[in-house]
């Protein structure tokens, strides 16, 4: 039995606002990719392969940022037992799993021509795979546990575990000898690539925020439907 307030589906006006934000996010992503590809010269060692950085690195950052959203809202849920916090955490976890899968796939596509292999059990790759599996575990917990409170508590525990793994993923390239290069950031890449990287990082951030919000709205509507269905059943039972 949930102790949190019943979530109401979001109003049409607010949905329209987020739809406009979504269009903006995707338009910004298209523009960012076009600008980055147009202005960045081929890398001395990698040539045009460097351009994969504009999708791989922002995707990796979102894979680390979204689990931190899961952490914050999981802790908030465990503290307040407010159902909406659990739904935000679950929405962020699904988006995080999507970005984690994308990051791994893009890493493999980049690794093949640069390292000569699709995959190696390097600390960065392995820790990212572990994060992906934890996020998949989070979604599995939500799929198999029926009791609402138990589902929220167990998934919050898995979400916190996933977030603990984030600093390990981030620092893995410094803590262990890895084939993967050190973290890419505007301070570690050549100046010619900084603008492209920054633009695409913001574009991915906007897309991630939009995804979490849309998924949260859907979860609210689903929850309202469950509540209406339970009320109808109670009414039917009392009649």
């Amino acid at each position: 039995m949930s102790t949190g307030a019943i979530a109401e589906p979001i109003s049409a006006t607010r949905t329209r606002g987020w739809t406009i934000f979504g269009w903006f996010a995707f338009a910004f992503l298209i523009a960012s990719q076009a600008i980055a590809i147009a202005i960045s010269p081929p890398d001395r060692d990698m040539g045009d392969l460097q351009k994969i950085m504009y999708v791989h690195v922002p995707s990796a950052w979102m894979t680390m940022l979204a689990p931190l959203t899961v952490l914050v809202f999981s802790l908030k849920y465990l503290w307040s037992r407010r159902e909406q916090d659990d739904l935000v955490a679950a929405s962020a976890a699904e988006v995080a799993a999507t970005f984690a899968g994308l990051t791994l796939a893009l890493g493999m596509i980049w690794a093949r021509p640069t390292w000569g292999i699709w995959w190696t059990w390097d600390a960065r790759l392995t820790s990212m795979l572990v994060l992906f599996l934890i996020l998949a575990g989070y979604l599995a917990v939500r799929a198999v546990v029926d009791d609402r409170d138990q589902r929220a508590q167990w998934s919050a525990a898995v979400g916190i575990l996933g977030a603990i793994n984030v600093p390990i993923v981030y620092m893995s390239v410094r803590w262990w000898r890895t084939l993967h290069q050190i973290q890419s950031s505007p301070s570690t890449v050549a100046p010619a690539y900084v603008i492209g990287l920054r633009l695409n990082a913001f574009a991915f951030l906007f897309v991630m925020i939009y995804f979490i919000r849309r998924r949260y709205d859907a979860a609210l509507t689903l929850r309202a439907a469950e509540h209406a269905s339970e009320s109808a059943a109670l009414k039917g039972g009392a009649a």
Binding site: P9, A218, A219, T221, L222, A224, A225, E226, A228, S229, A232
Partner: peptide
């Protein structure tokens, strides 16, 4: 979700 809400 919207269909489920309408139905309920």
């Amino acid at each position: 979700a919207r269909e489920a809400l309408d139905h309920a």
